[in-house]
Design a protein around this nucleic acid. Sequence first.
DNA 1: GCCCAGGTGGGTA
DNA 2: TACCCACATGGG
Length: 235
Amino acid sequence: MAEHDLRTLVGEIYGCLFKAYGPQHWWPADEPFEVMFGAVLTQSTAWTNVEKAIDRLESAGALDPAMLRRLSLDEIAGLVRSSGYYHVKARKLKALVEWLGGYQDDLSRLRKRDMAELRCELLGVYGVGEETADSILLYALDKPAFVIDAYTRRIIDRIGVAVEPRTYGGYQALFAHNLPADVTLFNEYHALFVQHGKEACRKTSRCAQCCLLEICRFGQSLLKSGQPRKAVEES
DNA sequence: GCCCAGGTGGGTA
DNA sequence: TACCCACATGGG
């Protein structure tokens, strides 16, 4: 599949999703620390459960890194119980705020850092994997990191794009190489994938009745003819 | 009662 | 590298 066609496809998917769901405006108005904690709390967890945990943190005045550093693991676990995996997540939040403490909780210092270096550093923090790191970079620190999640993989697989390698980086490269590195665009695109995943294509194995139906059909026909679209990660 | 949700870390072969 | 598995609540 030519590079030009892949670029067109990535643009078409965005166009269909935007037409169906409209602008999402995810997280930009929220407090960056709340965004960071939410990124950890939402790991493998429904957002409705995360909201309850964030509300309890807020009531305790603990949407603040300095406050969170003062609380014990058990205290944090009690506050985030509703988000599931609460013992593990308490440790993860603690590790994150310890890391923030190294910057005196000063987000302007973090925003000045090079994105790739910052990403490496985040990945070194306990509990921060690739998706969480990119969510923090994009939604809390305004860096152009494209977030890949289960919804995104599912949709891309269904459309029939042959991502190589089938890793987080492989999927991310598909978008990073075929879109301008724009924070607002990346923010909206990922939010639209999540919205679509929640509303349309969760349980069914095909995109019946969904806004990506035509794109899916095109992808399936290519697969049958033995020519899956190919996206290759640059090393 | 069963399935799933905006993952990650650690262990094993 | 490539799988497993633990981690756990709450809504449909």
